[in-house]
Amino acid sequence: MKRTLTFFNLLMIVYVVAPIILVVWMSFTPSMRFEVPIASFSLRWYQELFSYDAFIDSAWLSLRLGLLSALIATALGFLAAYGLVRGRPPGSAVLLGLFTAPLIVPAVVYGIAMLQFTNLVGLYGAFPALLAAHVVIVLPFAVRTLLAALEGQGPELEWAAMSLGARRRHAVLLVTLPLCLRGMVSAFLFCFLISFSEVTVTLFMAGPAHQTLPVRIFNYVSDRIDPTMAAVSALIVLVSVALVLVLNRLGALGTVRK
């Protein structure tokens, strides 16, 4: 019984990780075609990669977008989570619902809405519009992570600080924020990961000038198939896996489950 279960799970694990492993493995092929390298490995497709300006541009764009949106979303998320936890204003549930709505509303729907809306206000293809959309998309992860961090802290430490003469801003800056550091780092990395992996909304609204790495691959898949793509994909996998391992260590992955 136990053995059957374990065997089944091994098959299952092979199934779910097969495409990811294969992409990485394939990126080391020395051949022009997609062949699983067994005898000889080569980094030629990685070298090739750095001669494609388009990919370099996309990588920079993805990086900039990820860092900026994660930074903004973490800041906004902290403020919002703080207001929700310590303030509990009327309609807290509605506000939390709004902040986390992008988790539920299909990305295609938001992509269409942003495509039409950015055209309406004349910001189609503009970087600030794309950045704002990414902040919206990653905000739920920041809010949830920081809500958990703040709820775990309780208000007593702030009360203690304020009873000693600290104004609220000092109590927040000197006590609450330092103690949320782990949550802040988690939120930032989580947001970066989500932004870095975002395809759908970006594809709909970004326009030709702003192709992030995943969008670039999506567009290339139809016409240009060579192992360079595997190399790019492998790099994306590397970044994602590294981030997830760090997030796992920080205990931040629980927020996905809710």
């Binding site: 990780v17 495409p19 990811i20 992409v23 995943p214 898949v221 994909s233 981030l243």
Partner: peptide
């Protein structure tokens, strides 16, 4: 760790995964 493995397809970009699947399922795939 096992949960992390089962979660991995979620956090790896959908385009990358799909690309991986084309390498497995295509006419000249694995």
């Amino acid at each position: 760790w096992a949960i992390l493995v089962y979660m991995s397809p979620w956090f790896v970009n959908a385009v990358v995964k799909s690309f991986g699947w084309t390498l497995i399922l295509g006419n000249n795939g694995l």
